[in-house]
């Protein structure tokens, strides 16, 4: 927050970790941070289930990468990527609360003409969204795949991800 230069890329894990697989975005971003380091111009955020409070992390950024539980009407663990125009269409039909909050923010930056040029959501079909701190084993098993998808998307954006030394 006190950096001299504003970050240009935001990586954001979304979801409520109290609702089992709903928190997959947050768990994935944590796993990513344990394994990789990224340049200073990349900001990594636990977006939780916040709405308008996410505005400062989206407004005026060039690229926004989000990881979240998304209902694709597929089997649990199914992973897909949504980009730019495909996002609001998909998200306006979701039941999860934070999607509505997020959609608010994406609409607002669009109206203010400060929207990131590239917006990408890596989504995964959750299995259970009951009350609980831990995710289902099926979804834990997919966290590595989600991290790999993040790395390839970041590389596509020319954002280098360096493996952290395992000895540290």
């Amino acid at each position: 927050m006190y950096s001299i230069k504003e970050p240009t890329v935001t990586i954001m894990g979304l979801g409520n970790i109290l609702l089992m697989d709903e928190g997959v975005g947050v768990h994935t971003v944590n796993a990513f941070q344990e394994r990789y380091s990224v340049p200073d111009y990349v900001e990594i955020i636990d977006g939780g289930a916040a709405g308008l409070d996410l505005l400062p992390f989206i407004d005026g950024r060039q690229k926004l990468l989000m990881i979240d539980a998304v209902n694709f009407d597929r089997e649990p663990g199914y992973i897909d990527i949504l980009e730019n125009e495909a996002i609001p269409a998909k998200f306006s039909t979701k039941t999860s609360l934070h999607h509505l909050g997020l959609l608010d923010v994406l609409s607002i930056v669009k109206l203010s003409d400060t929207s990131p040029k590239d917006i990408c959501i890596i989504g995964i079909q959750p299995k259970s969204m009951e009350l609980g701190l831990d995710m289902t084993p099926e979804i834990w098993d997919k966290v590595n795949t989600l991290v790999e998808r993040m790395v390839s998307k970041l590389q596509e954006w020319n954002v280098p991800c360096a493996l952290r030394s395992p000895l540290k």
Binding site: E85, P88, A89, S92, L100, L103, D104, L106, S107, I108, K110, L111, D113
Partner: peptide
């Protein structure tokens, strides 16, 4: 520009 994009989102 926003209104003509047809994607009004929350609006």
């Amino acid at each position: 520009t926003f209104v003509s994009s047809g994607q009004l989102g929350i609006y």
